[in-house]
Simulated assay, not measured.
Amino acid sequence: MNTMLELDRISVSYPVARARQPVVQGLSLGLEAGQIACLLGASGCGKTTVLRAIAGFEPLDAGEIRVAGRLISSPRLRVEPEHRRVGMMFQDYALFPHLSIEQNVAFGLRRTAASRRGQQVDRMLELVGLRALAGRYPHELSGGQQQRVALARALAPEPDLLLLDEPFSNLDVDAREKLAYELRDILKSAGRTALVVTHNQAEAFAIADRIGIMQCQCLAQWDTPYGLHHHPANPEIADFIRRESLLARRATACLRGGPDTAH
């Protein structure tokens, strides 16, 4: 397999007063073409900053970012976001309320010939199961359907890499894991490479081929879901996996009215 995304010891900081506050430090990872990966960790650990750096919204203090073998970021080089062949699906979906579903998906294809644009929009709506709703508007759709529209729009320009920032955060808790499996199926059907940010372990394990656990602005472990469960790199990761698994089981029991509802 070919490496689609390579982060080589990247560091990012933000200005605070007259100093710089480190947010990501010395992070390295590699993602193969066609794989789906998740960055998992608590709020403030730097995972969204990693996405923003890959997308071109944040400069690097150190290290390099390559997509499909092409250098797109370093302290000396910063390719503009629109020239990176990287798509991003934002947390709030950022759909245009005055445009139909079909027009929202077509928005990223403005420089594409009209004949091909229509074919690509139809193909993306078919992929996400919304072709019958092409003429509707975002406010007429459920949260899960809006998520699919945002995904179709991000996939339409056929980016080399797709970035998704907390894609399930606006959805009901009982719908998130189901939609995570559906999102995985759509991405796999499209043959796309994707990096997802989440703080929810159940979502990460439902969607990802590889998971990165972030702790204290660093990547503590980059592994398969099986590897994280059976070979955690440190006691903190082991505790995190156990704690999140217990919370997920209790939440499921509460939804079903099971015996854990009283705890």
Rank of each mutant, 00 (worst) to 15 (best):
A33H: 09
A238E: 14
H230W: 15
G87V: 08
L247G: 08
S245A: 13
L5I: 09
E82P: 15
L179F: 01
A154F: 04
L99Q: 09
V149R: 04
E58S: 00
R110N: 08
G191L: 12
Y226F: 04
D223S: 09
G257V: 00
F57D: 10
V121K: 02
I186A: 00
I237F: 07
P15V: 09
A253N: 06
R84S: 14
R243K: 03
G87C: 11
V128N: 06
S13F: 13
R243H: 03
S43L: 07
A62Y: 11
S245Q: 11
A53K: 08
M1D: 09
D92Y: 11
R110W: 10
A37L: 07
E158I: 13
G212T: 07
A175D: 00
V128W: 09
I10P: 04
R131G: 13
R20S: 14
I101V: 13
A68D: 07
L60R: 00
G46C: 11
E140G: 10
P81I: 00
V79A: 15
F205V: 04
A37C: 06
L39N: 02
E102R: 03
V86T: 08
P159R: 01
M4H: 06
R18G: 13
G56L: 08
M4F: 10
Q21W: 15
E166M: 09
I213V: 09
S28C: 02
P225F: 00
D61N: 12
A134C: 08
D260W: 12
L29G: 05
I213K: 01
L171V: 04
T224E: 03
A220D: 08
A55P: 00
A106C: 07
S115R: 15
V24Q: 07
H229C: 15
V67M: 08
G212F: 06
R20M: 14
F57A: 09
I211G: 05
P235S: 05
E126R: 12
G258D: 04
L130Q: 09
G143C: 11
N200P: 02
H229A: 14
F90A: 13
Q146A: 00
G56Q: 03
I10V: 05
A17P: 12
F240Y: 01
A251I: 12
A194N: 09
S73N: 08
R148D: 07
S189K: 14
E126A: 15
R111N: 14
Q35H: 12
T112M: 11
Q25T: 13
V79Y: 15
L247T: 11
A238M: 05
I65L: 01
I72Q: 01
V23A: 14
A62N: 12
G69V: 05
G108F: 10
G63I: 02
I10Q: 00
R153L: 15
A19S: 08
L95K: 06
G44Y: 11
M4Y: 10
E58N: 03
R110I: 06
S73D: 05
Q103E: 15
S100R: 10
R242N: 13
A113M: 02
V128I: 13
L161T: 10
H230F: 15
L127W: 06
L31G: 02
L99K: 06
